[in-house]
Structures are given as structure tokens and as C-alpha cells.
Design a protein around this nucleic acid. Structure first.
Lengths: 132, 132
DNA sequence: CCGCATCCAATATGATACTG
DNA sequence: CAGTATCATATTGGATGCGG
């Protein structure tokens, strides 16, 4: 899912959307950024398990796809803040039904592993309920 | 995205759903099966570009995940028909907003009227490959 | 007709160390 | 702090041929 926007490469809208959110951690990044602004290290902690390299790579792709805004402050020490663009907010909204489906029919119907609570894993206080 | 239901592997519902639809051709398969029953060769023609191996593999995974129903007729020559399960229909419906997003914001085509076909990503051209 | 088996190429991700 | 560079590994997907 290198960089997206390959004109004519898509068979339908979902195909195109899948290319944007296809990275292993991208939906989690979107979720983490929903309604908040994050610095790099902050994001890294929120999206637990992702490495610096992959997080940076995914963020760059999301930025190129117009989903994420990257604001660089010329300070010492350096500060960079990530946030969703309006397009990213729309995408997040479009993902909500899919998330509800997954929560109800995949997670809800499957046995859960010990110690890895599904619902509470993500330590992100949701500002607004995303109907998930 | 081998077979799903990997206990403890999901951070949220979307993460789980992504595991189900993560294959390169899976959403196109879902699209092709939306509201119709297909034989293997038929599907192969509809999802143009997919190889037999990958199509069979994806179908097996979708079947294991309860998305696709596989009906085998003990005939000669063999006949197998694929269709969506009720769960697959729900998934297809949950994918619709994402498809609309992709169509509108990635592909950049004309905006679609809201409330299109239930469970459809896109109108299905009958008897024609899914390439646009 | 409907697949599976094998081998191989491409890509995505992970670990670790290093830099402005 | 916010990344890059490099190497290693894991996962997919594609090509081709065989089998029930």
C-alpha cells in the first residue's frame, strides 16, 4: 500500500479506501488522532506496539493522502504535531460502521485472550462517542 | 490476514474487521457476491485479475470467517456456488460508507446520492468484469 | 470445472543503532 | 524529540503445473 492515489488502479470506492487505510497500524493511528492533536512520541505510546520506523512511514503516507496534517514547530527540541484533516475526519466517520461490525461480529463472537482486554486496550478517552 | 479470530490480536472493532477484509481482492469478492450467487469460474471472471490460487484462498478464508457460504454440488463436472451469508450481507452494508468515501474523495468521481443500494459498494454491472 | 501444491517475487513489518 | 539507516523477517500474491 505504498503511496496511494494511483489513478485508474481502483475497481471501486472501497478498493480505493482500502489502499489508504491498508497499513497494519493505520486505522489505529486514525483512531488515536480522532479529535486530538498528538506529537510523535505521544502517538507512539498510544498506538502500542508500533515501531518508530513504521509509525513514521504510515504517518507520511497518511499525510500524502491528505488524511493527516503535520505541523512542524521550529523549536529546540523539535516538536511536530499530527492531527486529522477534515478529510481524515470524514474517513473516520465512514469507518465507524465497519468498526461496529467488527466489534459485534468478530470480537464479540470470538473468545478473547487472557490479559488483553479488547475494549479497554486503547487508552484514549474518546471525546465524542464514535458509535463504537 | 490469514484466518481471523486471533484472540487478543485486535485493538478495536475496525482492526478486527480489517483482518477479515484485508486480502487484496476480498472487498471485490464481496462486491461481486452482493445479491447474487456465483460459481467459481464466474467469480474469477467478475474479479478480473485475480488468480485461481488467490481467489480460492480468499474464498476459503471468507468462508471460515462466516462471510461467504460455499455450496458444493456433487456432480460431474463439479459445481460449487458461493454466496454471502447474512453476516456477509451485514459486512457489505458496513462497508458502504467507506466505499462512498473512497469513491468521492480518492477516486474523485461525482458525489453519490445518499442511501444507495443496501449493502452495495457500488452498482454491479451484470455480466461484465468489475474493472472500471 | 474447481481447485490444490510448489516455488518464487514483491512488499510490509520488525529490531536495532544512529543523527540533527 | 523526532525521526533515518540498515539489515532481517514475515506475509502476500503471482506463475505454473497437477489432480479429483
Amino acid at each position: 500500500m505504498a503511496t496511494v492515489r494511483r489513478p485508474g488502479a481502483y475497481h471501486c470506492g472501497i478498493d480505493a479506501a482500502m489502499d489508504v487505510i491498508g497499513g497494519k497500524w493505520k486505522v489505529l493511528i486514525l483512531w488515536a488522532l480522532d479529535g486530538r492533536t498528538c506529537r510523535f512520541g505521544e502517538l507512539r505510546r498510544l498506538v502500542s506496539g508500533v515501531t518508530e520506523k513504521v509509525l513514521a512511514s504510515h504517518l507520511r503516507e497518511l499525510e500524502e493522502d491528505g488524511i493527516v496534517h503535520r505541523e512542524v514547530y521550529d523549536e529546540v527540541p523539535p516538536r511536530v504535531e499530527y492531527s486529522l484533516t477534515p478529510l481524515g475526519v470524514l474517513l473516520n466517520g465512514a469507518l465507524a460502521p465497519l468498526g461496529a461490525w467488527g466489534r459485534e461480529h468478530v470480537i464479540g463472537g470470538a473468545a478473547e485472550a487472557p490479559g488483553e482486554a479488547v475494549g479497554g486496550h486503547f487508552p484514549i478517552p474518546s471525546a465524542r462517542p464514535l458509535t463504537m
